[in-house]
Design a binder for these strands. Structure first.
Lengths: 324, 324
DNA sequence: CCTCCAAAGTTACAAATGTATTTTTGTTTG
DNA sequence: CAAACAAAAATACATTTGTAACTTTGGAGG
């Protein structure tokens, strides 16, 4: 986006959101059409230029939060309010997911905010995915010039907004901190290639930083045809099926695990470039779960013992409780 | 407001602002009418429960900011975008004021946010008024448990939302910090009474804290029949007129000054309980100006030399520049 | 037990918003 | 220079929102 366009968008957002002018008046003052103002405003919201925050710590779901915290021996559990979509027919499935992503993103961003304001210089590790991306979008108005953000995994080849590179970049830009990422593909072609990639000096350095993270935000993926991993073409249909045969129920950062949270014995797990469970075990890990379809994966990962804190949307939380 | 009402409001805000449900859907889920949801949402907005922030570095008005900063030898000057109300007929005068208050409040809150995140424990002094009140409302999502907020002036008798007591209380509650205030009236009945009040131990202590403030937020009042000071009944019509005869053009914290920023020689100035200009001179002072009608008062106060930083709305800034 | 009062519900309508379609404008490119 | 294209304007319309007038409900107090 050009500089002048961005400036126009910011002015529109001020007039509309802060000034309380309506779109018509805003359009007149900016000398553009109302339709364009409308478009710019929705763009401003999506891009996280304007962010809406709710100033309340305990929003609800208390009993569920406590239950999950105790069951999985977590330091904390934050659940967004349940939207109650189980029986609702008024909201499309994709829209529901989007809502869950945003809700968890808001909650996680709030948590991250308080972490950043607690200590001058922290190192924050992050995974990838749409939930993590939303967290970056919802994180507005925080200055943390001494914070360091590092991706704990390799990058996608396709350049999408939830690529580790983009995530770290967005976090750094928004807070004024520094960003680092692993300049290697997420999944190597062979086990031998992985060793070569891992031995690169810059990679060794980056992994060192990652291991020193004060806290790590990760999310989980399901193992279905519609999972992000499949849609991004990171794994083939055949690979997905062979993973399931090994008992895998989900992944985090490309590490596949079974319903008990054990890394499965599979070729892919030996080609992934990311911090493994043994390494994650040594640092505080916060898991972000958005969407009920991730409940099974979440359950496995929570059982593994690598997770210390959970941020989850209300509906998924209820499903997770029901899973027993 | 009752606890259950507040909880309902928070849930409504989540469903609507975070979840992106419309008011109809929100109402259905909460089991109330849409009209009520609508009312709760607007209440949530003006109470500062939900706050909308714009992730802006440079919003505009650069030339004016620079001009003012140089003219009055300020450390910084922040101007909100100008809404261009001079010739506009589409917005009522009271609404315009409200917009200016909110805009300056947002900008000031952002500035305060960055101050709070810069250092662990700071002491922040504050004045009173609607602009300052807005600053407290717009300050959301900041934790600063070690911050101290102190009113640098006595309190109003009428308990309004912009009473120093309320201001300090709101700041403390929102950030989790501590609040202090001067437990004495704003303007004493006689000079002798003032001495008695000032000698109270708790007052001496509070003033000591106030003097140690790392930074101080103040605003200015005009000397007209419609000024807040008059409307709150703090001064009588006769007093106002005698003040004007002494050359007073405005006040800050109940201290009246002339167009050159000198404290006027008037009985009232000897009865006010607040940090005086000589004391303010020793600490960094940030002046908040919202509304063009305050330009004259702002000009006087800026000339006094007590002000180090200025946050002003775009329209007032332009008027101030025009005043020369 | 009844009356009064306030809060929420109901209804209705005007205003604002989101979105799709067509037209205009300005820029790029052969 | 003209064709091709993209961006924005103009237009139109369905949905959502804000608001006011009126009705119901559920206590509080006489």
């Amino acid at each position: 986006m050009s500089d002048t366009e961005e400036a126009l968008m910011v002015r529109a957002a001020w007039f509309y959101y802060v000034g309380g002018l309506n779109q018509e008046q805003t359009a007149t003052r900016l000398g553009v059409t109302r339709a364009r103002v409308n478009k710019m405003l929705s763009e401003a919201r999506d891009s996280g230029l304007v962010s809406i925050s709710i100033d309340h710590q305990r929003v609800g779901m208390l009993p569920v939060e406590d239950l999950l915290r105790e069951r999985f021996r977590l330091d904390f559990c934050i659940s967004t309010p349940a939207f109650g979509f189980k029986e609702a027919k008024d909201v499309e499935i994709e829209v529901r997911k989007q809502i869950a992503f945003r809700a968890v993103g808001v909650a996680a961003a709030n948590h991250l905010k308080s972490l950043l304001s607690e200590s001058e210089s922290v190192t924050i590790g992050t995974g990838w995915g749409r939930t993590i991306e939303q967290m970056t979008l919802q994180l507005a108005g925080v200055r943390a010039p001494h914070a360091r953000f590092i991706s704990i995994m390799g990058s996608l080849t396709a350049n999408s907004a939830y690529n580790p590179f983009e995530v770290v970049h967005a976090l750094a830009r928004r807070t004024g901190g520094e960003g680092f990422f692993l300049p290697v593909p997420f999944i190597a072609d062979t086990i031998e290639d992985r060793m070569v990639l891992l031995s690169q000096r810059s990679v060794v350095k980056a992994l060192e930083i990652a291991r020193s993270a004060a806290v790590c935000f990760i999310s989980a993926g399901e193992l279905t045809e519609t999972s992000l991993l499949r849609r991004q073409g990171m794994i083939s249909r055949a690979e997905l099926e062979s993973l399931r045969r090994c008992g895998a129920v989900g992944d985090t950062n490309g590490i596949f695990f079974d319903s008990e949270g054990k890394q499965v014995d599979h070729d892919l797990n030996r080609r992934t470039i990311a911090l493994g469970f043994d390494e994650l075990m040594k640092i505080p890990v916060i898991l972000l779960i958005a969407g009920q379809e991730k409940s099974a994966a979440a359950r496995g990962l929570l059982k593994s013992g690598v997770v210390n804190g959970l941020v989850i949307d209300g509906d998924a939380a209820e499903t997770l409780v029901a899973l027993g």
